[in-house]
Design a protein around this nucleic acid. Sequence first.
DNA 1: AACAAAGGCAACCGCAGATCG
DNA 2: TCGATCTGCGGTTGCCTTTGT
Length: 297
Amino acid sequence: MGHRCCSKQKVKRGLWSPEEDDKLVKHITTHGHGSWSSVPKLAGLQRCGKSCRLRWINYLRPDLKRGSFTAEEEQIIIDVHRILGNRWAQIAKHLPGRTDNEVKNFWNSCIKKKLLSQGLDPKTHNLLSSRQRASTKLACKYSSSSPSSQPQHGSFTVFNITSHAKDTNNNNNTMMMNPPPPVVAFPHQSPNPNTTYAQNLYGSSMDTPFVSSSSCFGNMLYESDPCIWDDANAVVETFEEPRVDSLPPVPQPQQQENDDKIDMDCSLMEGGAGSFDLGLLESTLLSAAMDDFGWNF
DNA sequence: AACAAAGGCAACCGCAGATCG
DNA sequence: TCGATCTGCGGTTGCCTTTGT
């Protein structure tokens, strides 16, 4: 069964040869791709247009960054995935030079296992129940390439934030935020141990589209040491063992997507804002929504 | 050294939305 | 308005390499 676009002609499948790559690159660099369905014919390739498009986008584009993912990229993937779920194309937009396919493969082969080994459900980013953790411990060993990326002391550092936001009329009405979803710190993954991961992230030279309008959240998000964070009247508590069963589930991106639209009034904002990087959340949701609605600025 | 299992990754498949005539 | 085609996306498959026995 072939693609509709190429069902009439005999097409080659499987790995691309250097000659085919060469033909495709030459054609696109001189003529552009135009209509992908006409590319194979014009380029003299016995491939279907879809295959040509995929090959170009994933491997031949000159702006691709090859090589293994950096710790920063890995953290970005985890953060954005927590918000958007398996929207690989959206996630890849946060990683210049990376493709959705590359991100997806990296997630499935590395990050997923790493999260599992750290007791996290890769779908929900929630802590697994003790029973689930026991089963995953049996099933999977640490897959990390660096020993330092293993959880230390066999425990997690989980922030629990209680925000005492004062209302604008200066009275002392305190607004107790709903219990936030768990956020697990990965201090061992920070490239610079003297700065928080978010600082590394936002302060990196990488051309990240993130613009954090609430950097206080961003800065505390990956704080590794036990601390009381009192900026903006929020209190951070840490505890050694996660209270797995009492923690509420992270709202599922999939659940928020009706007709594949991001609900801008989503429950992430309402309930768990305290433990999310709001800057990342804002920019990611906004860019996703802008994409969904076709807004360009 | 040979074989099996696991991991990693490139490519394919099918669906859904967009576009065009 | 509608059907055909194109494009983009996420899920899945299958091949090749690496690792373990």
